[in-house]
């Protein structure tokens, strides 16, 4: 009886530990480097499997990346004035629809990315503070050109988290904000969230 209780308790404890692994102390540049390298390694070794079943890759990307994104902060930036006074539940729902959408697009993008190069993390530049910083990276293309991809990070209680990505100078947050906040003002957040989930709002590359 006692043994059973202990087993149950310890399982519950380890499960909760796994769910909340504590604050992530890594620096933003390290997070970007480790995450992308691990993902691309996994992708390279299981490419055939993922090509056959893209949902599997989406799941993996979701599992590895969601905890590194401040979905709530991104959502608030995107909604702007349209989100003023919004119920927390609706806001959370919108935030998770956005991050699901973004991550599955990212996973699909990864799958079409054939080059076996790894992104190069560039040295820190510009305004960086204790609370906000940008990690600059670039992907080398087959023809010798580069695609610059920057990640904006902010410090949270769980460590550094990304909240914006900028590709060739085009910010995900700014671009979505200008598309979505008028829609929310017009149609309401529930309809917009449902449309995002249904895949009716596709914007970025």
């Amino acid at each position: 009886m006692n043994k059973l209780l202990i087993t149950l308790l310890s399982t519950a404890l380890s499960a909760s530990l796994l769910a909340n692994p504590g604050p992530d102390n890594r620096e933003p540049a390290v997070i970007v480097e480790e995450t992308t390298t691990a993902l691309l390694d996994e992708l390279d070794s299981r490419r055939a499997e993922f090509t056959e079943n893209p949902a599997l890759l989406r799941e993996m990307v979701n599992r590895d990346m969601l905890r590194l994104i401040d979905t709530d902060y991104s959502a608030r930036l995107i909604l702007g004035r349209a989100g003023r006074g919004m119920e927390t539940e609706k806001m959370d729902d919108f935030a998770s629809a956005m991050s699901d959408h973004l991550l599955s697009r990212y996973a699909d993008g990864l799958l079409s990315f054939e080059a076996d190069t790894r992104p190069e993390v560039l040295p820190l530049r510009g305004n960086n503070s204790e609370k906000l910083t940008r990690v600059r990276t670039r992907f080398k293309l087959d023809d010798g050109g580069f695609v610059p991809v920057d990640f904006a990070f902010r410090k949270t209680e769980q460590g550094w988290k990304a909240f914006d990505v900028t590709i060739e100078g085009i910010s995900y947050v700014l671009t979505y904000r200008n598309q979505i906040s008028p829609l929310v003002a017009k149609d309401g957040i529930e309809k917009v969230t449902a449309d995002i989930r249904a895949g009716n709002l596709l914007l970025e590359d």
Binding site: R76, R81, R84, L132, R134, V173
Partner: peptide, 28 residues
């Protein structure tokens, strides 16, 4: 949006100043 942001990016040779995220929130 794409045109103006990409133009800014080129003007600053790939290193434009970060958007003023705080200002976006103040609007909130």
């Amino acid at each position: 949006d794409v045109y103006l942001q990409n133009r800014e990016f080129k003007i600053y040779d790939g290193e434009p100043p970060a958007p003023d995220y705080d200002a976006l929130l103040e609007d909130f």
